[in-house]
Design a protein around this nucleic acid. Structure first.
Length: 305
DNA sequence: TCAATTTGACCTCA
DNA sequence: TGAGGTCAAATTGA
């Protein structure tokens, strides 16, 4: 992993996030157009996010408490077994509404296989344990834990662990086909940083500390960062969807756009929100939003308008 | 028939 | 020692 000083890392992160903004803007333009192109753009967004996370984790952002050996062990591909892999604060949490009000959270674009369920002391609902379906075939170490919230059983707390190193076959094929048809789609984007509005507009983006759910349609995704990710493994391991390496951008796609445009928008919210989580410095929660937005200026409001 | 889910037992950590 | 996490056999469904 490369090494960066904090300032250099911050600049790079800003550059990468600006890249994401460009991608999102392009995506917005194509939402009514090519479905494949939208998917490719989404894939690029994820790749950029991956790089950003890498920058963050290799910089002084990560100078806080180090990952526990347990978490590191998990992230390193489940080298150890039957060990307590994490504590609550070590997990990257999002809140997800149920798919159509059903028993499971809305699809996050990856294929999961349930391997266990446990009653949790003091919790009304059991916790489900999931691994990537491709764990064995591709050695994908991604895992997640899903638990209903007591306040609203239609909302799930989802804890993501590990990195998706898998490449779902159908999506890899689609990405490749698109790449052949539309090689420019993966070209370098011009980074434009001026005129970025702080996402303080409550109608467009909630703060990193504020849960949001813009779309109330069944199956919509709500995201609520609950822990500072820098007390957690602040790496791509936190990401629900992503390749493990950021080099194979075009073969690692994410099925953001399988449903409809509103779904794509809501999932993009999730993407960027998760990024905000991953970029949050280890400061008291009440300061997170302003400080973060001073550095990470994501204008998604235009995209969501 | 195969893959996914369920569930009780086992293991590890705090 | 109990709670949480994982395993793996049994069960279920496509």
């Amino acid at each position: 992993m490369e090494s960066f000083d904090a300032n250099g890392g911050s600049r790079l992160v800003v550059t990468e996030l600006s890249h994401i903004k460009e991608l999102v803007m392009q995506l917005e333009e194509h939402l009514g157009g090519s479905h494949d192109l939208c998917k490719l753009l989404a894939s690029q967004i994820f790749s950029t996010i991956e790089r950003s996370i890498g920058i963050i984790t290799s910089s002084n952002f990560d100078s806080g408490p180090k990952r526990s050996a347990a978490v590191a062990g998990l992230a390193d591909g489940l080298k150890t077994t039957k060990k307590r892999k994490m504590t609550e604060k070590m997990k990257n949490q999002v809140k997800v509404s149920s798919a159509g009000g059903g028993e499971t959270p809305v699809d996050d674009g990856h294929s999961w296989r349930k391997y266990g369920q446990k009653e949790i002391l003091g919790a009304k609902y059991p916790r489900g344990y999931y691994r990537c379906t491709y764990r064995h075939s591709q050695g994908c170490a991604a895992m997640k834990q899903v638990q209903r919230t007591e306040e609203d059983p239609t909302i799930f707390n989802v804890f993501y662990l590990g990195t998706h190193t898998c490449v779902p076959k159908t999506e890899a094929a689609a990405g490749k086909a698109l790449q052949e048809r539309n090689p420019e789609a993966s070209g370098t984007m011009t980074v434009k940083t001026e005129g970025l509005a702080v996402a303080g507009d409550s109608k467009s983006w909630s703060a990193a500390t504020t849960p949001f759910c813009k779309f109330s349609t069944p199956g919509s995704v709500c995201v609520a960062p609950e822990h500072s990710p820098f007390s957690a493994p602040s790496t791509s391991e936190n990401w629900p969807v992503s390749p493990a390496t950021s080099n194979s951008y075009h073969n690692t796609s994410f099925s953001l756009f399988h449903a409809s445009e509103w779904r794509a928008q809501s999932e993009l919210q999730e993407v960027v929100s998760a990024l905000v989580v991953a970029s949050t410095p280890p400061v008291p929660a009440m300061d997170v939003t302003d400080e973060l937005l001073d550095v990470v200026d994501i204008d998604v409001s235009s995209f969501l308008a």
